[in-house]
Lab assay of single mutants.
Amino acid sequence: TLFEALYDYEARTEDDLSFHKGEKFQILNSSEGDWWEVRSLTTGETGYIPSPYLA
């Protein structure tokens, strides 16, 4: 399933992933509550992002 970022986000820890509004992601793991592990389709990087920032 693909999701798109609604807002920009700046990583706060080394496990987080910074991203920009409009960036698209593949969800790798959504079992961690509000923090999902994703792969950016723009950069190929993986990390955790806050799920409320996605649509």
Rank of each mutant, 00 (worst) to 15 (best):
I49Q: 00
T13M: 10
T13A: 10
Y7H: 06
E23C: 05
T43A: 00
Y9K: 10
F19I: 07
A5T: 04
E45V: 09
V38G: 03
N29I: 11
L6E: 14
I49G: 15
L28V: 06
R39Y: 06
L6T: 13
I27P: 01
P52L: 14
T43G: 01
D34F: 13
Y9F: 06
S40D: 04
E4A: 05
D16I: 11
S40T: 14
L6V: 06
A55L: 09
T42G: 11
F3A: 06
G47M: 06
E4C: 10
P50R: 09
I27V: 12
A55D: 12
Q26K: 04
D16K: 12
L28Y: 14
E32M: 13
G47I: 05
G47T: 14
A5G: 01
E14R: 10
E10K: 09
E45M: 12
W36G: 00
S51H: 06
K21W: 04
D16R: 13
G22I: 01
V38P: 00
S31G: 10
G33A: 12
W36V: 06
A5S: 04
L2M: 07
T13C: 15
N29R: 06
A11R: 06
G22C: 05
W36N: 00
K24N: 05
L2S: 04
F3I: 05
E4H: 06
T42L: 13
D15S: 13
R12S: 10
L2R: 04
E10T: 10
D8Y: 04
Y48M: 12
Y7N: 05
F19E: 08
R12W: 13
I49N: 00
G22H: 03
Y48A: 02
E37K: 13
Y9E: 01
W36F: 04
E4N: 03
K21C: 07
D34C: 14
E14P: 11
T42H: 08
T46V: 12
T13P: 03
S18P: 04
Y48Q: 05
D16F: 14
N29P: 01
T46Y: 04
S51F: 11
L54E: 06
R39E: 10
V38F: 15
Y48W: 14
G47K: 04
N29W: 05
Y9C: 07
G44T: 01
A11Q: 08
Y53H: 12
D15G: 14
G47Y: 06
Q26F: 14
K24L: 14
Y53V: 12
S51I: 05
A55E: 12
N29E: 05
S51M: 05
L28T: 03
Y9P: 01
K24R: 11
E37P: 01
F25G: 01
G33Q: 09
P52F: 15
V38Y: 00
I49D: 00
G47D: 00
E37G: 01
L6K: 12
P50F: 15
Y7L: 06
R12C: 13
K24V: 12
Y7M: 07
P52K: 15
P52A: 15
P50C: 14
H20G: 06
D15F: 15
F25H: 00
D15M: 13
D16C: 14
L54R: 05
D34M: 11
I49P: 00
E45D: 07
F3Q: 02
S31D: 09
W35R: 13
R39N: 01
F3M: 07
E37D: 00
A55I: 11
L54C: 10
K24E: 04
G22A: 01
S30M: 12
L17F: 11
V38K: 00
T1V: 15
V38R: 00
S40W: 04
T1E: 12
E10S: 08
S18M: 05
L41W: 03
N29G: 09
S51N: 14
Q26Y: 12
Q26N: 04
E14S: 12
L17R: 15
L2G: 09
W36C: 03
G47E: 02
G44V: 04
S40F: 03
H20D: 03
D15I: 12
E45K: 13
L6C: 14
T46C: 06
S40V: 03
K21R: 09
N29S: 13
Q26I: 14
E14D: 11
T1F: 12
W35F: 08
L17Q: 01
L17W: 05
A55Q: 13
R39M: 09
G22K: 02
Y9D: 03
D16T: 13
A5K: 02
S18I: 08
S30Q: 11
P52G: 15
Y48P: 00
F19H: 03
D15K: 14
I27K: 05
D8S: 06
G47V: 03
S40I: 14
F19W: 02
W36K: 00
D8K: 01
E4D: 04
S30W: 11
T1A: 12
T46G: 01
E37I: 11
E14K: 12
S51T: 06
P52D: 15
T13E: 07
S31Q: 09
K24G: 03
F25N: 01
G33R: 10
S31W: 09
G47R: 05
A55Y: 05
S30K: 10
A11E: 00
K21L: 07
E10I: 11
T46F: 06
G33F: 07
E23P: 01
L2Q: 06
V38I: 02
R39S: 02
D15L: 13
T43N: 04
E10Q: 11
S51D: 06
D16W: 11
T42C: 10
Q26C: 10
D8C: 10
N29V: 07
H20M: 09
I27Q: 02
G47L: 05
S31Y: 08
L54M: 07
D34R: 04
D15T: 13
A11L: 14
A11M: 03
F3S: 02
D34Q: 09
S51L: 05
Q26A: 08
K21G: 03
L17A: 02
I49L: 03
L28S: 01
Y9A: 02
N29M: 05
L28C: 06
